[in-house]
């Protein structure tokens, strides 16, 4: 469906809408057969910074996904206290600090060892990234879906439904969210497990996703609502309505393909911010706890022992810095590629 909107994004389902086939064919000859999605891809490919950032982000996800394989090849895991292992004598000195220089970097321990307990930093980091990235993916997916559904319903049906959905959105937006994440975490955990029992790690993960999802969908809902509101009155939607298409079909085939772009761009901003929020929760001590390897928890440890062992901050810090930088640059490039008019 070639729509007249400037926000025209990917070519999803393009040829599947019969009424726009002729129009698509006409567009084909004038634009040398390039769909908006194809044009976007061509523009993006020319942007060297964007391509490098995309590769970097992809590499992070690959490392996170392959963490078990990598640690198997590397021969260590993030839980074992290697300081107590007779195979590695003298790992920590008398002050329980890494004996080797630069945080205990050696051929056996590439990124050094954790002070006091002697765990391997390399595997802690890749497993920590795995935790953070997968959690953030889950949160982003659920919040985007919720936001799209709520925004779509409000924008498409309008009237009273829209009014009340708008009020609910405003209400949740008025929560100072990070403060509420902190407060909700233990309470919501207590709904599932008695406070006297140990909370299993998977339950913590579920609660984090739940809490972040609950207070995370509003921005997306607003964005989708305002986009749908603009599209609802357009001729091609009217035409579909007149020709007897059901609301579900109109939403799916006429409106959704037109708002894919803003949703995608917004999502590329949401994912890193979710990673940082999860890290924030672990950093202040209400997210993941010992011994679950987690990025944010590594920073909490690193900040505690920074005066004695600054090297412990180095690898997780550089990893996070590069990741956020790559994602920021990628977000800008994706936006530019989709919408070439926003000159920077």
């Amino acid at each position: 469906m070639t729509s007249p909107t400037q926000a025209a994004g990917t070519s999803t389902d393009a040829a599947m809408v019969p009424e726009s086939l002729t129009e698509a064919a006409r567009e084909d000859t004038s634009q040398e057969g390039l769909s908006p999605g194809r044009l976007m891809w061509l523009r993006f490919r020319r942007d060297r910074v964007g391509v490098i950032s995309a590769c970097a982000v992809f590499a992070y996800f690959a490392v996170a996904a392959l963490a078990p394989v990598i640690s198997w090849l590397y021969g260590k895991d993030p839980y074992t206290l290697y300081a107590q292992d007779p195979n590695y004598p003298g790992l920590l000195n008398d002050f329980a600090m890494p004996a080797a220089p630069f945080g205990g970097v050696s051929a056996d321990f590439w990124f050094g060892v954790e002070p006091n307990v002697g765990r391997d930093v390399f595997t802690m980091l890749i497993y920590g990234m795995r935790t953070s990235l997968f959690m953030a993916l889950a949160v982003t997916l659920t919040t985007v879906l919720t936001g799209v559904v709520i925004g779509m319903v409000g924008g498409y049906f309008g009237g009273r439904v829209d009014y009340w959905l708008g009020r609910v959105t405003d209400f949740f937006l008025s929560f100072p969210n990070q403060l509420f994440f902190i407060a909700f975490m233990p309470v919501v955990t207590a709904l599932f497990v008695s406070p006297k029992d140990e909370t299993p790690a998977y339950l913590r993960a579920v609660v984090i996703i739940l809490v972040l999802w609950f207070l995370g969908w509003m921005a997306m809902a607003r964005l989708v609502r305002s986009s749908v509101l603009g599209l609802r009155e357009r001729e091609f939607v009217e035409a579909a309505k007149v020709s007897g298409a059901s609301p579900w079909r109109i939403v799916r085939k006429e409106i959704l393909p037109n708002i894919v772009t803003p949703i995608l761009v917004q999502s590329t901003y949401m994912l890193p911010s979710n990673i940082l929020t999860i890290a924030f929760l672990s950093f202040v001590g209400v997210g993941f706890v010992e011994p679950t390897p987690d990025w944010g928890r590594m920073f909490a440890t690193a900040a505690d022992i920074y005066e004695q062992d600054p090297a412990f901050m180095f690898f997780p810090g550089v990893a996070l810095f590069v990741f956020v930088l790559a994602f920021n640059l990628l977000g800008d490039s994706v936006r530019d590629a989709f919408d070439p008019k926003t000159g920077r």
Binding site: A302, Y306, F321, V324
Partner: peptide
């Protein structure tokens, strides 16, 4: 501005402390 915005408070804080205080 792009480089600095990729830092986090808990990352930059200890570095600054290390340089100026410790």
């Amino acid at each position: 501005s792009i480089v600095l915005s990729s830092f986090q408070i808990y990352l930059l804080g200890p570095i600054v402390l290390g340089l100026l205080v410790y």
